[in-house]
Nucleic acid binder design. Structure first.
Lengths: 335, 335
DNA sequence: CACACCCGGTAGTACGTATAACTCCCGCGA
DNA sequence: TCGCGGGAGTTATACGTACTACCGGGTGTG
């Protein structure tokens, strides 16, 4: 309310009758055995009185670290990634880190020049496997990188945090088999990605030797694409599949709409399963049987690993995050 | 590939055989009439050769500006805000600004000390009205502030960008009236907020003198809350409303589930309308008649206004963003 | 021919902080 | 008494950039 200019540590020093260095020590929290309790409180009082906030830019310049990490995800409008962000941001905040999002191409961001437009220098990077294309021409300047849901073997990441989607697929397959399904179509994501490749392999493995017939159809990442693909499958000549196993909830909802349009009852005539357990999954009728992916947990563990690397260079071992099948109303024994 | 340390402008200067000042001028883009074309290209070549990137921290320190703005929204897991972010981030990127998100309490962020944990100093703030509680004890240090969907009269914002929700409510009301509905219940958001207050007033005004009976019930911001509130309404003694007008899609989906559970057909026995037009709205059966809120556009215009203020101090006039009714399958004439 | 002016570039400095190195002083053991 | 260790603060400096003030020299002009 007095000066418009923000007070500096030097102002605080003058106010408290000490040197600027002392202010820095006290505010930096590392004054144990360096500054007496009496002086420390005096400094803090002065800082409060002036409303002092350290200048982040100056601190960053001096220390070479920014306490900021970059999170790369394909699109926040996908609730999975919004949740992932939420978990990551919470952990980051607990450790005094800020999170900036890479403005992905899908969101209309710049297709290239990643760090040119980055709002600040970065200490580290947390990246989803779905953003692999972005990462390819990404000059990370040798900063620590933690990958989420990506091939542990094939990356320059310090470590990885992966959902155990193979187990998820196994659970879905077991569920459908137990219900008696023998003609299953996999409505798969039509995109190159480690996580989807793993799902396909796991599904094939789970059905191996059970006598179940597996077919695969690919669809783009939208509800409409899922609906169209499902319609094609359900209209095809020959025996209809009794279950549609979808790579993610949005596809499953599209399939649900397709079934309805064709006059098929779900789950009586056709079982449908999803993957993600978004809000969407329990909004539709019938509610989707799906695999719950704890996105927040992935974000939390990934950020925890990254923070750990940044703090003491200690590299966590690749972590797996458990998933669980949620059985709801979209699956039942075949007619 | 040579030194691990990042090259500085001084390194580039040495490489190009010029002074550091010249490098700064060239890279800063303001060398017209100051540096010859020949030298400029030499500098750029040297910069490219070394892989030079300006140190943001140093630049921020020097200029006092960070090219970073803060976006405050309640929760990114709400698709409306994810879309808003997307629009805002795109415009910001076009102007060379980065966007950081305020880790909101709803996401588990720190309840207070906003700037203490902020990842960087900020040039300006873009805030949703729903985040008013956060904003209350927000030391913005006198930075430019643009508010979204908030009372234009009652804030210290430079300007505001508001959805024309009053018009949206009018359109919904007209639609229901035209279908013949006369007993309408407003399933309202149980939260203090300018945008919801406007909606309630607009609805009351639209039904004024039409002979239609309006009742209001409040619910929290979740699907479950919407379902419970709708069940109460639909189970209440006396004549049942023929239409449920909901303040946002998630509530409407809850209402849809309630209707289904009570054996009511939508829209034959009960019409339901939403507000937002999220992915959700066209995922459910029947698809929701709702008001499409162009969240990206709000983000874009809000960010554009903020950038404009930051660039030349020119304050835009408060802007209104048009909304439109989307008629789908959840409304029909009453039985 | 002298002077002013502008073009093209450089030297120097300040931004605010963190921290290494240093000074001062007090107490204690030899 | 002297030296020495260490507690308590201070001095000084560097981080990398942007930008003001300056300077040399070529050119047009009076």
């Amino acid at each position: 309310m007095t000066d418009k200019a923000r007070p500096t540590s030097r102002d605080v020093a003058r106010e408290a009758g000490v040197s600027q260095a002392t202010v820095s020590l006290v505010c930096g929290g590392k004054w144990h055995g360096r500054v007496s309790e009496r002086i420390a409180t005096a400094v803090r009082d002065a800082a409060d009185a002036l409303g002092y906030r350290p200048n982040l830019a100056a601190r960053n310049l001096r220390t070479g670290r920014t306490k900021t990490v970059l999170l790369i995800v394909p699109a926040l409008t996908n609730q999975y990634y919004a949740r992932l962000y939420t978990g990551a941001a919470r952990v980051a905040a607990q450790h005094g880190f800020g999170v900036v999002l890479y403005p992905s191409p899908a969101d209309g961001g710049p297709a290239r020049n990643p760090f040119g437009s980055a709002p600040a220098s970065l200490d580290g990077v947390l990246a989803s496997s779905m953003a692999a294309d972005v990462l390819a021409d990404f000059d990370d300047g040798g900063r620590p990188l933690v990958m989420l849901d990506s091939d542990p073997a094939h990356s320059r990441a310090a470590t990885t945090v992966n959902l155990d989607v193979a187990d998820g697929m196994h659970q879905v397959a077991e569920h459908l088999l137990a219900l008696g399904h023998r003609r299953i179509t996999h409505l798969a994501a039509g995109v190159e990605s480690w996580t989807f490749a793993v799902r396909s392999r796991a599904l094939a493995a789970a059905l191996e030797g059970t006598g179940a017939e597996l077919r695969t159809v690919r669809a783009a990442l939208t509800m409409d694409a899922g609906q169209r693909a499902a319609e094609r499958v359900l209209r095809a000549p020959g025996p209809r599949p009794t279950a549609l196993l979808c790579d993610f909830d949005v596809l499953a909802v599209g399939a649900l709409k397709a079934a309805r349009r064709l006059g098929l009852r779900v789950p009586a005539d056709l079982s449908i399963t999803g993957f993600d357990d978004l809000t969407l999954a329990s909004a539709v009728e019938p509610e989707l049987t799906t695999v719950r992916l704890p996105a927040e947990e992935v974000g939390r563990q990934g950020m925890a690993a990254l923070v750990s690397v940044l703090a003491d260079g200690r590299v966590d071992r690749p972590a797996d995050v458990a998933v669980s099948l949620v059985v709801r109303g979209s699956t039942a024994p075949p007619a």
